[in-house]
Nucleic acid binder design. Structure first.
Lengths: 351, 351
DNA sequence: GCGCCGTACTGGAACGTTCCATCTTGCAAC
DNA sequence: GTTGCAAGATGGAACGTTCCAGTACGGCGC
C-alpha cells in the first residue's frame, strides 16, 4: 500500500500557538500576547478578532513558555510529609484555597516520611523553579531547608527549624501539651503518661511541653514517657509499653490523634475502659477525633489556617513585600470530648 | 548615606545556567548538556570538569527550559475531587509511588467537588502542558473530559464516563453493591435500605447495583433508597430520613464509608444499636472502616492499586505504547467487621 | 602522503512566550 | 500645511535548554 507523503496529512498535530492565533486574526503575535494578558491599549476591533481566533483554534496559553521568559512559574511547591494523616488534608485544603485566591498554582509532592525521599521531592520542586516552597512537617535535616532557603522563599509548617532564612507557621506545642496535661490534672489525674511522636516533626517539643507542665503542676514524680510515632501503630505500641507499668497511669497524652486512636485500641484490648479506667488525649483535633464513635479529647490546631497563613507568608516573600523572617505561632485550644473523665477511685493494675 | 552604585553588588542574583557551567569548565554548553543527560561520548576528563563546575556553582537544571524545547514536561497532572476522603489518600499514594518509579513528577490539584472549580483546575493543568491527566472521581461533565482527551492522554479513576478517548480504572460498583446486599441478605435481612451518594461519581452505579441485587434476591418489594452524599453529613441525613419509615429497615447499605459513619451516628442518636437493631455496610474500606472503634463492614476497593494502575495506563499512552482505550474494572471484595449481624427477631419501629 | 573514518566536541536554531524599543497613523493645535 | 503627540501595533531579543548538522583531529590502511 503506497503511502502518499507531503500531502500535509497533519495540519498541526501539535497545539496552536500564539503565532497561529496572530495569523488567523491578521495581527502580530505581540498584539495577541497583549490581549491574553489583558493589556489595555488594544482596539476593540482587534481584541475581538483575537478572541475569536483563540476560540476557533481552541488555543490555550503555554504556561511553560511564559514561565521561561517571565522567570517565574506562579507555582507554589508543597512537600507534605504524610498524606495519610487527615490533619494534612486540612492543611492542603487551606493551602489550595488561599493560593487560588492569590493567583498561584500549587504543586504537591510527598516523600512518605522518608528523609531521603523528601529530599528528592524538594529537589524536584526546585528544578521546576517553583516560586516558593512550603514544607509541611518535613523530616529532612535543617541544612536541607537552609540550603533551599538560599534559593527561594521557604515556609516551614508545623515543625521547628533552625533555618534562619525561612518563615514558619507552627502552633505552640509547649502550650498545647500544657493544655492537655492541665485538663487531665484538673480532672484529678496525677499519673499522666505521654506517648511521644518518635522522630516526627514537633514530637520532641510536645514531649518537652508535657515534661514542663508536669513539673509545673507538681507532678514531676509521676512523669512517664514512652516512645511512639505519629501513626496508629506507634500509639498502639506505646500504650502496650505503658500497660507494663504498675500502677497503671490513669491518663495518657498521645502525641497526635492517630496515635491516640492506636492507644485506645491497646487499652480496649487490655480490657480497660475509656475514660472510666484510663483517659486519653490526642493532638491535632482531626476529623477522626470528632467522629462520634471515637470522640477523642484533643488539642486543636487549625490545619486549614496553617495552610492559608503559610501561603500568605510565602507570597509576601515572593512578591518582595517582606524580607525579614516571620515566625507565626498559633495558640492551640483544647476540645474536650468523651475520652477523658475523672480517674478511677482505686488505682488499677493489670493482673 | 550615599549609595555606591556600579560596584557589581550582585555577581549573579539569578541561578547559574548551563552557560555558566560551560564557561567554568571551559567547554561548550552542548557538552554540559550531554553530561547532564548522561550521554556517553564525553571524555572522562571533560566529564569530570563539568561535574566539578556543576558542584561548585551549585547548578540545578531548569526543568522549565527543558520542557519547552523537549515539548514535554514529564509531569502527570492529577485532579482529585475530594482530598478529605481518606480513600483518595490511598489513591494519591499509589499514583505518587508509581509515577516516581516510571520517572514522572506528579502535580496535584483539586476543585473541592465543585464542577466549575474542577474544570478550572483541569484547565490549569492543561496550560501547564502536563504530559497526561488523571481525574480521580471527577464531578465535571463528560464533554469536559472528552475535550481534554483530544489534547492529551486522560485516565478517569473511580467514575464511569462516556468519554471515548480516555482510559478508565474503576471497580465493579454493580458487583460491589451486590456483595453488600448479598452479605446482608445472607444474614437474614430482608428490609435492606440504601443511602446513595447523591451526585457523586459512581453513586448512581452503586445505586443500580443495589436495585439489581435486591431484585435478584427476590427482595424487590423491600427496595428503599434515600438520597445522601459522599460525606458524613450526607449519610447522617440519609439515615434520619430512613428512620421515618415504619417498619424500620434492619440493614443499611451506605454509598461509602464516610456516609456510613454518618449513618451510624444517626442510628446511635436514635437509640438504635448496631448491629443488634440495624446493620450497616459501607463502601471503599478506608482506614476509617478499619478503626477498631468503628469496625465497619465495607466493600473493599483498592485505592492504591487504582492509583498505580492509572499511572500505568497513562504512561502507556504518553509513551505511545498503546492507542486503544483501556478500561480496567476491578472486582471488589467484602470485608466483614462488627457493624453487621443478624436482624433483630422482631421488627423495630421508632416510637 | 592521501583519503577516510570515528570520536569528541561545538555553534546555531528552535521551543512559545513576554517585553521593549520602535514604527505608523490619525488628529488636534497652531 | 506642518508639527507634535498619543494610541495602537509590531518585530526582534531574550529566557535556558535540547538537538542537529557540522568541524577538528588523530590514527589507520594502502
Amino acid at each position: 500500500m503506497p503511502r502518499r507523503s507531503n500531502v500535509k496529512t497533519q495540519p498541526s498535530q501539535s497545539e496552536p500557538t500564539i503565532l497561529d492565533v496572530a495569523r488567523k486574526a491578521r495581527v502580530s503575535k505581540s498584539l495577541v500576547s497583549m490581549v491574553i494578558r489583558g493589556d489595555d491599549g488594544v482596539s476593540p476591533k482587534n481584541r475581538e478578532a483575537v478572541l475569536n481566533a483563540i476560540e476557533e483554534l481552541n488555543y490555550r496559553p503555554n504556561a511553560i513558555a511564559r514561565s521561561l521568559v517571565e522567570r517565574r512559574t506562579r507555582i507554589l511547591g508543597v512537600m507534605i510529609s504524610d498524606l495519610r494523616n487527615p490533619f494534612f488534608g486540612d492543611v492542603v485544603s487551606g493551602i489550595q484555597i488561599r493560593a487560588e485566591e492569590l493567583g498561584y498554582r500549587v504543586l504537591f509532592n510527598t516523600g512518605d516520611c522518608v528523609p531521603k525521599l523528601e529530599e528528592a521531592a524538594i529537589e524536584s520542586l526546585l528544578e521546576l523553579r517553583v516560586d516558593g516552597l512550603i514544607l509541611a512537617a518535613p523530616r529532612v535535616d535543617d541544612p536541607i531547608i537552609e540550603r533551599a532557603g538560599r534559593v527561594l522563599p521557604v515556609v516551614v509548617l508545623n515543625r521547628d527549624t533552625s533555618a534562619t532564612h525561612s518563615d514558619s507557621v507552627t502552633n505552640d506545642n509547649i502550650a498545647g501539651a500544657g493544655l492537655a496535661v492541665e485538663h487531665l490534672a484538673g480532672l484529678g489525674h496525677t499519673r499522666i503518661a505521654h506517648i511521644d511522636g518518635g522522630g516526627g516533626a514537633g514530637a520532641s517539643v510536645r514531649r518537652e511541653g508535657y515534661l514542663r507542665a508536669m513539673r509545673r503542676l507538681g507532678l514531676g514524680d509521676h512523669i512517664l514517657t514512652v516512645e511512639g510515632a505519629f501513626t496508629e501503630n506507634g500509639g498502639y505500641r506505646g500504650a502496650c509499653e505503658l500497660l507494663k507499668s504498675a500502677p497503671l497511669p490513669t491518663a495518657i497524652f498521645a502525641a497526635n490523634d492517630i496515635s491516640a486512636i492506636g492507644a485506645l485500641r491497646a487499652l480496649e484490648e487490655a480490657g480497660l475502659r475509656t475514660p472510666a479506667d484510663v483517659s486519653v488525649v490526642g493532638y491535632d483535633n482531626t476529623s477522626l477525633a470528632a467522629l462520634h464513635q471515637i470522640s477523642l479529647t484533643s488539642v486543636q490546631q487549625f490545619g486549614t489556617d496553617n495552610g492559608r497563613l503559610g501561603v500568605e507568608c510565602l507570597v509576601e516573600r515572593i512578591e518582595g513585600k517582606r524580607s525579614t523572617p516571620r515566625h507565626e505561632v498559633h495558640a492551640p485550644t483544647l476540645v474536650v470530648r468523651s475520652s477523658t473523665g475523672p480517674p478511677p477511685n482505686e488505682p488499677k493494675t493489670l493482673s
